[in-house]
Design a binder for these strands. Structure first.
Length: 522
RNA sequence: GCCCCGGUGGUGUAGCCCGGUCAAGCAUGCGGGCCUCUCGAGCCCGCGACCCGGGUUCAAAUCCCGGCCGGGGCACCA
């Protein structure tokens, strides 16, 4: 039954329930809470510059961007570049790579702020807390404090120091009297809190590591929850969108705002996004790049935005995919095939088709061709006429023409006793010399109908004396080699094309004798 | 050990707050068919889920309790 007949039958059966083709389903985000309480929605992106943005970070960026658009609000890019830890280090190039990623994604931010420029502000407010008796300088050893005080809920001796004592210790933190690990400022969130994770958390600590932007200018650094408690207020953030792993930070921020008498902001959370198989954390990626196991930050195995761009994934596709995940608190698994489906929809109508034969090859000799040359025109796209066609002239010498075809097809060719070279001719197998990978065959005509009647495979082919080497970097980092048809010579960098029966690729480098591509998907 | 939070087909999501219209929608995936000189696109058909057990109710995916499973926090990381 043809599709037309099927449709008619369906109409006959249920005339009212014919599904409309091309129905569009727009994914809608739930509204932000309490928008009416604020004059204007202000949100922020808070990347830690340890590497380029990956899919998880992109989710955060896209969600913020969508909400800001939805409410005509403002979005601030705030580099959360406090000193970090030994394992979590700032990568200087990351500042730029993050911007690059955001631009690629089409995320508009209205202002850029660096946490590392704001140390004096944090000092000021920390001092204020000390003065008001809401914080204290703790000289306990970290491990001791954890076991002896945090778990038991018993206050440590430093908690009862006077304001004067605390300020004195604070000065000694700043002037270098105390070294790394010797003193911290703790907020008096409460030792009696039910959740041990919240008890008198550290808000300031000493780090003598060099910072890529401000060098050795500061030795006392704030911790995430403190710096955000201050900045979310000072920068006028109204809605804080964060992963559910940071829910504890909500509580800490609220405690600090209460001490200052500042209004509470709105929080929105979403679940964790995880990857099948190996998770590539940025610190791990950095290590693998240093050891030359990865090709760089744009290696497809990092799943960085840069790497997706390199593969020819469209930002719109990624955005659509990320929005399809919604805002649920459930942890989700990243599903590449879903992303590819969105992307395929976008690139399929725009990607010209080319012949490509991957290694290993078979040399095909077709005997008995009646013409001395064959000239064919092959359209670049089956559905889009405007792409035009390329002309291929096949030289026939002594009735014989030679082609390169993929070894992959040999089984089906042998099974059917022949095959069709797409757009060209049909042949019948005479002999396959396995060791030499040579297939001897006999010309069987030009008619497609014949090939169909024989249910021949229709395969891509390349002329051995008129082809160009192609290398394709696959998503798993492996390299696929092969040859492309002569028309590939005209390809330009950044073009997304389809190698028929192989997949969509983005052209990354073109030289006289070779083309390098990145594989997008099938 | 202590504290949170989740659990709808292979994957993701809608529905859950305000119980009935949900014998559960959509997307992706998978299987089959049509179409096509690509294993792409398009079209059609199909597969496949409310974690378990109680309770409330005329009625529960939706409310309550318990269990199980999963995630997270308990860093002088973000």
């Amino acid at each position: 039954m043809s599709s037309e007949e099927q449709k008619k039958l369906l109409e006959k059966l249920s005339p009212l329930e014919v599904p409309k083709a091309g129905k569009k389903e727009e994914k809608k985000l739930p509204p932000l809470p309490n928008v009416e309480r604020w004059r204007k929605v202000v949100m922020r992106l808070a990347p830690f510059p340890s590497g380029p943005l990956h899919i998880g970070n992109a989710r955060m960026a896209v969600l913020n961007d969508e909400y800001v658009k939805m409410y005509s609000g403002k979005l601030l890019l705030v580099y959360d570049d406090t000193i970090g830890s030994e394992e979590k280090r700032i990568v200087p190039e990351a500042y730029e790579m993050i911007k690059e990623g955001l631009n690629w994604l089409g995320v508009k931010y209205h202002k850029t702020i660096y946490k590392s420029d704001r140390l004096p502000i944090f000092y000021k407010y920390c001092e204020e807390l000390l003065k008001r008796g809401h914080a204290y300088v703790c000289l306990c050893d970290a491990e001791e404090w954890r076991t002896k005080y945090k778990i038991t809920g018993i206050p440590c001796p430093h908690r009862s120091q006077s304001v004067e004592e605390n300020l004195e210790h604070w000065d000694k933190m700043l002037d270098g009297t105390y070294g790394e690990g010797e003193a911290v400022v703790r907020i008096k969130s409460g030792m009696d809190l039910e959740d041990p994770a919240l008890r008198d958390h550290v808000i300031m600590r000493i780090s003598e590591r060099e910072h890529p932007r401000v060098g050795m200018k500061y030795r006392v650094w704030p911790l995430l929850e403190f710096s955000w408690a201050i900045d979310d207020h000072l920068l006028g953030i109204t809605h804080i969108l964060r992963g559910k792993d940071l829910i504890k930070e909500d509580r800490m921020e609220q405690i600090i705002w209460k001490f200052f008498g500042w209004p509470i902001r709105e929080f929105v959370h979403y679940g964790k996004i995880s990857f099948k198989g190996a998770v590539l954390s940025k610190s791990k990626a950095r290590m693998l790049i240093e050891r030359k196991i990865l090709r760089g930050w744009d290696d497809p195995r990092t799943w960085s935005l840069q790497s997706l761009a390199k593969r020819g994934i469209r930002p719109e596709a990624l955005r659509e995919y990320l929005l399809s995940l919604g805002l649920s608190l459930t942890d989700v698994e990243f599903d590449p095939s879903s992303l590819y489906a969105y992307n395929r929809r976008l690139i399929d109508p725009e990607a010209p088709r080319y012949f490509f034969v991957r290694e290993p090859y078979v040399l095909l000799k077709v005997h008995g061709i009646p013409d001395s040359t064959i000239s064919v025109q092959l359209p670049y796209h089956p559905n889009v006429k405007k792409f035009g066609a390329r002309t291929i002239n096949v030289r026939v010498i002594g009735g014989i023409a030679k082609f390169v075809i993929p070894m992959q097809d040999i089984e089906s060719i042998m099974g059917k006793g022949g095959a069709r070279l797409k757009g060209l001719l049909n042949f019948e197998v005479v002999k396959f010399v396995k060791e030499k990978r040579i297939l001897i065959s006999k010309f069987q005509g030009y008619d497609v109908g014949f090939a169909k009647s024989k249910s021949y495979s229709i395969i891509q082919w390349v002329l051995p004396d008129k082809c160009i080497d192609v290398e394709i970097i696959m998503p798993d980092g492996t390299l696929v080699k092969g040859v492309g048809e002569y028309a590939c010579k005209h390809l330009t960098v950044d073009q997304v094309i389809q190698f028929e029966r192989f997949g969509f690729v983005r052209v990354d480098r073109v030289s006289e004798d070779k083309i390098l591509c990145y594989y997008a998907h099938d």
